[in-house]
Amino acid sequence: MADDSLIFYEEEINQIDALISKMLKGAEAKCALLVDKDGHLITRQGFTHSLDTTALAALLAGSFASTKEIARLVGEPEFSVLFHQGKKDNIHMSLVGDRSILVVIFDDRTTIGMVRLYAKETSIELTKIFEKIKEQSADETKSGITHDFASQAEDKLDDIFQD
């Protein structure tokens, strides 16, 4: 698991984006995020400009992780769907494959049932894409991190982190 880094190529992200925006249209939801269980944001669709998606991704992943522990304590391996209800906006989270979370934010223009239905179908499709990504990343050597990358990063660090 430690060496198992997560690599997404443009083609797959486009496929994922298309699926998610189709879901948003169908379910009439506001926006959706796809978040890695570690807290990294994979992609986002819909009206996300007013949201701090980086923080949201970290918190949602944290929330999902803590719920997993709760599940274990009551004898469930994992809760695959979480729902937070607010006054205006609601959040629906569902597990995609074994390491991602599909987060849909919606308001009273739609219903939890519609979101649930579409999220479920989308996560099936997304799981297939993730399986493909996993197979590919196993035999590809392409990576964004090169020798250059690390040394250039060092220079940047000296500029930024000055007391």
Partner: peptide, 15 residues
Amino acid sequence: MVSINYSSREVCCKI
């Protein structure tokens, strides 16, 4: 693990 996203061109690490 390091997350590399070629679509948004991001490398993300967790410390």
